[in-house]
Amino acid sequence: MASDEAAILHQAIGGNPAAFESLVRTYQKKAYIVAYGFVGNREDAVDLAQESFARAFKALNRFDESLPFYPWLHRIIRNVCLNFLRKKRRHGEISLNDMVDKGYDPPDDETPDRTAELGELSKAISAAMFQLPHDQREILVLRHLQEMSYAEIATCLGIPQGTVMSRLHSARVNLRGLLEDVKVSSLGSRKEG
């Protein structure tokens, strides 16, 4: 953990509102992205990210300062989202927005055909992701949207790096199965360009 974050955390635990505010500012978008990965829409994801910080604030005095902050916060976000999904599912009220590749800047050497092909595939993946078990969806979000390394994901989820690799692989194999079910053409056997 960076020493300046450790100092901010120490102050936040001591009840300094400015320090807590600094933690919120640092992690608010990360928290939102994780929540979005669980619930699939912007409004709920913002609410759940706020709720997670409210719970983190309440539990800060139980936080072990020798450990990194984000994995602890991530567990709170995860629990808040799972509780939310449990309640929503009971009432059948889940709404999902697609994740899109809007804003993605393709590499210069990418052909227009390949850009179109991957664009189609991304769209199909964004819909299929919400059919995956939540632990597989979560690890895909950490890897592809948070751009975390295996070591960072392992720390965040409290699992060995080998499990990170196998869980990511299972998620991708399941995704491929779901996409083949809907016959996504870009999953054909053409060689990599």
């Binding site: 978008k29 939102y32 992205i33 979005y36 990965g37 912007r42 913002v46 927005n97 994740m99 899109v100 590749d101 809007k102 804003g103 993605y104 092909e117 991957l118 664009g119 595939l121 991304s122 993946i125 964004s126 895909l140 592809h144 949207l145 991708r172 194999v173 995704l175 491929r176 996409l179 870009s186 999953l187 056997s189 053409r190 060689k191 990599e192």
Partner: peptide
Amino acid sequence: SAEYQKLARIVAATDRLRIEIP
């Protein structure tokens, strides 16, 4: 090898996903 090519496409396409940031 064929399996790897399919997986490579899935990884490349998943890398392009972006969440709508408010």
